[in-house]
Design a protein around this nucleic acid. Structure first.
Length: 268
DNA sequence: ATGGTAGACCCTCTA
């Protein structure tokens, strides 16, 4: 069995006590982290290695940044989403570890959708383009027929049941039809949303903003996913959202999502 | 309620 989790920590330096506590308590075999908000050299590697994890980081100054932690050795496949060599933003890391190909990603937010002149903003265009690059890359990965897990902060709300108030998010880049269509396009390649494969319950969220008491009112959205290739989906035994860290003092605005895969060859 | 909060960092940007 391998337990794989994803968590947007919103600054690994600010969240280090939470991260160490969560790793010790939840004990994921593989953890995908997003929004490190630090350069590689500033990543708290030693503290995490002390808990028995290997570390692969693609950091950046001030913004973005992704990492993979694993109890098993890590072979880094790439630290850049293919398709635009000029894209400097640290939003993608892909590795082999624990016998599985695992990619951690932090998709662009895309807000504001409109520029001052009413046309689509550069940020929203970048988001859609980035998701198109992801679509192309996933298409290639599926041809390998590997078991793989694509996890992270996708910054897209899939369905009405994944947001506390669909009307309030109507114009938001996370819920715009263009964004949702891009996510569907990726899903329709043949990926399984691990959370949706294990529950039909709606109103289950992974992000609650800091403003206006959103957490206390459960005003959240579900934008953090673990997407499975067919070979990984065959091995899925459990998946859930762990709301606990969101309730801690000085929490990230996201909370972890985890899944468990049976070992290859084990009957499920 | 066209605000609100949090984090990075040089004061405004991103989310």
């Amino acid at each position: 069995m391998v337990r794989i989790a994803t968590w947007n920590v919103n600054s690994v330096k600010a969240r280090l006590p939470h991260l160490l506590r969560w790793l010790a308590e939840a004990k994921p075999d593989v953890a995908l982290l997003q929004e490190l908000k630090c350069i590689d050299e500033a990543f708290p590697r030693l503290e995490i290695e002390d808990l028995g994890y290997n570390v692969a980081v693609r950091g950046q100054k001030a913004y973005n940044g992704v990492a993979v932690l694993s109890k098993h050795p890590i072979d880094v496949e790439c630290t850049h989403l293919p398709g635009d060599g000029d894209d400097e933003q640290a939003r993608y890391i892909e590795v082999f570890t624990a016998g599985v190909r695992v990619a951690g990603l932090y998709a662009p937010n895309g807000n504001p959708v409109k520029a001052d002149d009413g046309s689509l903003s550069d940020k929203f265009a970048y988001k859609l383009d980035w998701l198109e690059r992801l679509h192309h890359h996933v298409g290639g990965l599926l041809k390998t027929e590997d078991a793989f897990v694509l996890g992270g902060d996708f910054n897209v709300i899939p369905e009405d049941g994944d947001v506390y108030d669909p009307a309030a998010f109507k114009a938001d880049a996370l819920f715009r039809p263009e964004s949702r269509a891009q996510l569907r396009k990726i899903m329709y390649l043949g990926l399984t949303d691990a959370f949706r494969a294990t529950t039909a319950e709606v109103g289950c969220y992974s992000w609650w903003g800091y403003r206006a008491g959103a957490w206390a009112k459960d005003h959240g959205v579900r934008i953090d996913f673990l997407l499975l290739s067919p070979q990984a989906a065959d091995r899925l035994t459990a998946c859930d959202i762990d709301r606990t860290p969101r309730g801690w003092e000085k929490a990230s605005d996201h909370t972890p999502v985890w899944c468990e895969l049976a070992d290859a060859g084990d009957p499920s």
